[in-house]
Simulated assay, not measured.
Amino acid sequence: MKKQLYLLILLASLFSACDPAPATFNLETKNFGPNAVITIRSAENGETLKVENITNTNQTFKINIPVKGYATLRTEDGTHKGEYYFYLDKGSYKGILDGKNINSYPLKSVPTKEGEQFIDFYKLKDDMSKNLLDSLDIVELELDQATPSNIMERAKNADRWREKKILLQLNIIKAFAKKYPGSAHTLFLLEQLGNTDSEAKNYLSIFNSLDKEIQESKKGKNLLKEIKQASQMMAGSKMPNIEGENPDGKKFDLSILKKVNLVICWTSYNGKSRKNNQLLVKLYEKYKNKDVEFIGVSFDKKRDWWVNVIKDDHLTWPQYSDLQGAKSPNAKNLSNYNVTYGSSKKVGD
C-alpha cells in the first residue's frame, strides 16, 4: 500500500514538473461598457489564446500553457478599441485597463526583462506622441464633419497628419533601438508598422543602429532583405536590369530611358491591369513628349496572351517579358511579386 502511495506521489510530482506554470493576469478594469471584452492573441501566428468579458472590477485569468513570444492584448468596447503588444511568458502580469484612457499602456508589472522593455517602449511612445495624437484626433473629427465644399481640403490635411504619425512612429522605434540596441523587439516593431516600401531609408537607419547579433539573426536577415528590396523600388533609385525581350525579340536597352521613367508591372489576365491600361494610355499621350517614358514589364507565361493585349489595349510604350511568370527575376527585382506595380526611376541614379 505504501509503495503504491509513493508511486502516486512520484507520478504527480513528475507531471507537475512537466506542466509549465501559467501566465496569470491580474488587471484592474474600469470604465468599460457591459459588452466589452479582452482578447489575447499570438502576434506571430494570430492564434486566439484567451477571451474574457470585462467586469470593471479586479479581474484575474490565466493562459495555462503560454508559449514564449510576441502577443497582443486587445480591448473592444463597441467602436472603441485598444491594442497593445507585450511579450508572453509564464509568470504574473499586473496592470490597469481603463476604458476612458485606451492610449495608456495597461501592463505595469511583467515577469521578464523582455516584457519590461515593452513597458519602456510605450513610455517613450506616450512622451513623444501626445501632442501629435491630440492634433490628429482634431483633424479626423474635422474630416468627419466636413461639407462638400471643404471635404477635399480637410482630407488632404488629415493625410498630412497621418504621414506625420508614421514618421513619429519610426522616431519612437528609433529612440527605443538606441536605448536597447541588443533587443530583437525593434525588428518586431518595424515589422508590425509595415511601411518598408515607403520608408526604406528610415528602416535601414534604424536597422544599422542595432547590435550585430540582432542584425544577423534570422529575423534580422529577413528584414534587411525586405529593406533592400524596397530600396530598389523607390522613386529615384537605380533601376534593376529588366530581363527578357520586347515583342520584336530585342533585349532591354538603357538607351530608351528618359529623365523620368515609369515601370509598370502587369499581366494580360489581371483585370486590374487591363483597367489600368485604359488610364495609362491617356497618361502616356500626355507625358510621352515631356522627357517621360513608360516601360511595361509583363509577368505572363503565354506569349500570345501578352502580345494580343498589347495590341488590343493600344500600349504603345516599350514592353518586355521573359515569359517566366512569377518565377521571373523581374517579379522579385521590380515589384516584390506584386501586380500591378508602378515605380518611377531617374536616369543616372
Rank of each mutant, 00 (worst) to 15 (best):
L124K: 14
D126L: 09
D126V: 01
M128Y: 06
S129M: 05
L133A: 10
L133K: 15
L133N: 12
D134K: 12
D134I: 04
L136T: 12
D137Q: 09
E142I: 07
L143Q: 13
Q145E: 03
Q145K: 05
A146Q: 02
T147W: 00
N150K: 08
I151N: 07
E153I: 06
A158F: 04
A158L: 07
D159E: 05
D159N: 07
R160V: 06
W161K: 07
W161G: 06
R162I: 02
E163H: 12
L167P: 03
L167Y: 00
L167A: 11
L168Q: 09
N171Y: 10
I172C: 14
K178V: 02
A184T: 11
H185E: 08
T186G: 09
T186N: 13
L187W: 00
F188V: 03
L189V: 07
Q192H: 12
L193W: 11
G194I: 01
T196A: 15
T196F: 13
S198K: 04
S198I: 06
A200Y: 13
Y203R: 01
Y203Q: 08
I206D: 05
F207I: 08
L210R: 01
L210E: 08
L210T: 04
D211K: 01
E213H: 08
I214E: 04
Q215I: 02
Q215R: 14
E216G: 04
K218M: 12
K219M: 09
G220T: 13
K221T: 11
N222T: 05
N222D: 03
L223H: 14
K225T: 13
E226D: 13
K228C: 14
K228D: 12
M233E: 15
M233K: 01
M239G: 10
P240A: 02
E243L: 07
N246S: 13
P247N: 11
P247L: 06
D248N: 15
K250N: 13
K250C: 02
K251F: 09
F252Y: 09
D253P: 05
